[in-house]
């Protein structure tokens, strides 16, 4: 049997998403136990292969693997040592020789998880590839919305900010729309993908108008380098027109969820006090991340059978 992978949201489809979200319920329950650990992946080895630093995602995956009783190997390749001399394939073959069952991969380049899936017999989990996909982030976001709002069907969601350079935006657009939500991207045109022809989304530039009719505001991280690259005149101007400032947040209905994949730039895309608002669910997203990743690893490595 060929290994199964989690590379993107598209190939999961609605059924795959529903299945993993339902499975997540059980691991949320496990996470709340006094000893939050089950022996379902005993003897399995999960490697985290991070070519790009992301301590929070790596820790979330490793915690998930440990709570399933899998052995965990960390292969941290700092940007500097991932020098251009070594091929990714050589690295993967070396790791595989140690006997492993799954590789969680993070890379600055889109597509690397697909390349690795072609070179290994282990299951590959995409932990974020460039601007492309971050499927476990999308799963945990969907799970969080489902927890708070009961579901995504018919919900209006605004994804605000730098969608062009965002794997979170790409995977969340796919996941939210697959589950029946109505998605609007809000960003200056310089921060939108070159072509949105095939995207099932609306695009707007007036954040204030959009905020009046949404159930969820999903903020994307705004990086300083976008200003340096001349995509926006300044972070200040970005914040003024596209940030969920404290003032803007006060215009939201109380039940509107505010979400962010982290790490936040308080004062840029999100006002300093917005994270403390009752229906800002950023820490809940992080908590659900571990359970979602348990569901993913369990599904891939134990065939989904308890």
């Amino acid at each position: 049997m060929t290994a199964r992978h989690l590379l993107d949201i598209e190939s999961l489809g609605r059924d795959g998403l529903d299945h993993l979200l339902t499975l997540t319920d059980r691991f949320v329950e496990v996470s709340q136990r006094r000893v939050p650990k089950v022996p379902v992946l005993q003897g399995k080895t999960v490697v985290s292969l991070f070519y790009e630093d992301s301590t929070r995602t790596r820790l979330s995956f490793e915690t998930a693997a440990r709570r399933l009783s899998a052995d965990v190997m960390t292969f941290s390749v700092s940007t500097s040592s991932a020098n251009k001399g070594e091929s990714i394939r050589d690295t993967v073959e070396t790791i595989e020789a140690m006997g492993i069952d799954a590789i969680v991969v993070r890379h600055k380049a889109a597509g690397v998880p697909w390349q690795i899936a072609g070179w290994t017999g282990a299951s590959v989990v995409n932990g974020g590839d460039g601007w492309h996909q971050h499927p476990t982030q999308a799963l945990l976001d969907c799970y969080t919305i489902r927890q708070r709002l009961g579901g995504l069907e018919g919900r209006a969601i605004a994804i605000v900010g730098d969608a062009k350079h965002s794997r979170v935006a790409r995977s969340n657009v796919d996941a939210f729309t697959a589950l029946g939500a109505d998605v609007t991207l809000v960003a200056p045109p310089t921060l939108l993908p070159a072509s949105l022809d095939a995207w099932p989304v609306k695009v707007e530039h007036d954040l204030d108008a959009v905020l009046q009719r949404v159930d969820v505001v999903y903020l994307l991280r705004m990086q300083l380098e976008r200003q340096e690259a001349g995509l926006v005149p300044s972070l200040r101007e970005y914040s003024t027109f596209y940030g969920l400032t404290d003032e803007r947040a006060r215009t939201l209905r109380d039940d509107v969820l505010v979400m962010h994949p982290g790490p936040m730039n308080r004062g840029v895309e999100i006002g300093a006090t917005v994270p403390d608002r009752p229906n800002t669910v950023i820490t809940q997203q992080v908590a659900n991340g571990v359970a979602v990743r348990m569901a993913v690893l369990f599904d891939l490595l134990a065939g989904g059978v308890l």
């Binding site: 601007w131 790409r170 993908p193 072509s195 949105l196 095939a198 995207w199």
Partner: peptide
Amino acid sequence: GAWSSKLGL
């Protein structure tokens, strides 16, 4: 174009 936008490249 459409493909680079989808593929995140």
